[in-house]
Design a binder for these strands. Structure first.
Lengths: 345, 345
DNA sequence: GCGAGTTACTAACGCGCGTTAATCATACAA
DNA sequence: TTGTATGATTAACGCGCGTTAGTAACTCGC
């Protein structure tokens, strides 16, 4: 029984229903402005159901100039993607939105080296209608490419001087709030480990918040207490070891990424010290692990899933040719006090 | 200067190069069996580069019947996706392979309720050439649909009685090894918390390994010491509380998922007990967090990224019409001894 | 009985590309 | 010259669909 399994096209549906292909298209797409009698409509729907007709998306895209898909593009290396503790939340947020709009989600990883080229190809290949850029670190060329390429795009994160739509939190203010909390507990010598290298904009922003908090408390920031980590726990472990081996004493540390904090805490333990007894620790991000760590990590809640959803909503606006209400949307963060910081006597 | 920005088609390239569209196609696709003079070839390449030509993927797909994309389909709810600690590794693994093959990766989430329908639509819409199914829990109908739908598919995980290609680890043997390790330390009363509900095949398999280890050590398994968790730390926290409140004493626990173990450990701590002093804990999966937890968690290493890569390689074979060397590929696990288990006096 | 309007539908083109079958030019042997 | 092999290129069709411009039939007012 060599079922030849011919592809079922809208022509087949038309034949079975005894109408034209055009009518089938009108009915299945609910095209307004054309009158179809209820009986005809039903005949078409029945025929389509009976044949199990599913439109060919390539043909649809080609004819309509719409891919009905968006892309999540990441400039990070596969290694960093593997240890990105936010990715699941972001994907979950995007899926929630795309699902309701019957859109598809594509994941793209582009090498930082040829991102400019890559953005152009993504735009021109027309496989996606728009894209969401994750924690980008872009050179000027790539930025210009992206802005002139006529493809809707929304940034998750912020890029100074960029004209692109974006969704983010106020990293500086949130970091300042976190460090102020440490100050309020009486800490004066506060170290800082960033979430990422300085070229990723969120890192310097969070450092700025740290500096601002210190300065406005009348404390001279000490550069020897600052380290730049690289996303993963491993780097947190290294930077904390470096801090502990340094000459500058500190009673608290602000780690601008919970994921990095995981490693940092491990280094503290390894040095025979304890959190919060010997070192108070303040995180940032509030990844799912934080509330279950020992001790539960005080941190700043980053609404990752909501950010993704908002970015997606903005992108859909852009795709449909509407201007989103705001160009740079900032969501609220929240200080989460758990048990990793103690008050100084 | 209202740059109209007409789409650049292969016709434009042909015109500029002074050849036909066919020749352009032959050159750009490196079609063999047709002779193109080196000068013509160069002219075409130059013209394409000068215009910044990028083929329209929808048109390519329509004409060639190949989408040059694969799908990662997950049957889990968005909520579970958000807390899936493996997703980044899996995506990273898939991206590594798709990147080298110039394929795209789509993420699909299908509701368990209408998965059968969903698989069919994915297959028929032809937006992807094949799919990778993540930790599926399928009813028979969906399985049949999938096997008869003529779309290449590879399972990550195992489904008893399924004819689909799959990639997995030997969950039973790995769990048995983990529990044997606890037994070797002198533990006799060993509790078990699963990674997932029983309907996800890996869960009962790991429980079976746990039971086998006990039985072959001459210990009668105690059903009152077994709990079924639900992927996330929260569920681990609940199940451990339930165990601690039960009447059955235990000196060790085998938690068949590090992610669940995060929550379980938190419950132990909350009860005023300590790992490993009061309760030894053995995990499963070896997520990035495990080696940095306090104490570092002994566990079974699951090669998630390698699994994804292998699944992808098998899928590519299937798409190209070649039969992969084995139908059910099993990768090796490894017992990772850290510091969460202590020997009983 | 006749144009004007309305309702219900369809013919036919184009989206941009891959690919087959055919064409044209050239060379070379008989 | 004629025929044949072969090297280089192209005309033309089809993939499956969205969509515009158009047609046919059927009212309705006068």
């Amino acid at each position: 029984m060599g079922s030849k399994s011919k592809r079922i096209t809208s022509q087949d549906v038309a034949n079975l229903a005894g109408v034209s292909r055009t009518t089938v298209s009108f009915v299945l797409n609910n095209v307004e402005g054309f009158q179809i009698s209820p009986e005809t409509r039903q005949k078409v729907l029945d025929a389509a159901a009976q044949l199990g007709y599913v439109p060919d998306s390539a043909a649809q895209t080609l004819a309509s100039r719409r891919a009905r898909a968006i892309g999540l593009v990441m400039t990070r290396s596969p290694h960093h993607i593997a240890s990105d503790s936010f990715l699941p939340q972001i994907i979950s947020g995007l899926l929630k939105v795309t699902k309701t709009q019957n859109l598809r989600l594509m994941i793209e990883q582009v090498d930082a080296a040829h991102q400019s080229q890559a953005y152009l190809e993504l735009a021109r290949a027309k496989r996606i209608d728009g894209m969401i850029l994750l924690t980008p670190r872009m050179d000027d060329e790539a930025l210009v490419t992206l802005e002139t390429a006529e493809i809707p795009a929304v940034l998750m994160g912020h890029l100074p001087g960029s004209n692109l739509y974006s969704v983010d939190v106020d990293n500086r203010a949130a970091a300042e709030q976190a460090v102020r909390y440490l100050l309020s507990l009486g800490h004066r010598r506060i170290a800082c480990i960033t979430n990422a290298p300085a070229s990723y904009t969120a890192a310097p922003q969070r450092v700025q918040g740290y500096l601002d908090a210190l300065t406005s408390a009348g404390i001279e920031p000490n550069p020897a207490l600052i380290r730049y980590a690289d996303f993963d726990p491993e780097s947190g472990y290294e930077r904390m070891k470096s801090l502990l081996q340094g000459d500058e004493p500190f009673t608290a540390v602000f780690v601008a990424s919970d994921n990095v904090a995981i490693g940092a805490k491990s280094a503290i333990r390894e040095a025979g010290l304890r959190v919060p007894d010997d070192v108070s620790m303040m995180g940032f991000d509030d990844i799912p692990w934080s509330r279950y760590s020992d001790p539960p990590l005080s941190t700043v809640h980053l609404p990752a899933e909501a950010l993704a959803q908002q970015a997606c909503v903005m992108l859909l606006d852009l795709i449909q040719g509407q201007l989103p209400p705001t160009k740079h949307l900032n969501l609220e963060t929240e200080l989460i006090v758990r048990k990793s910081c103690r008050a100084l006597a």
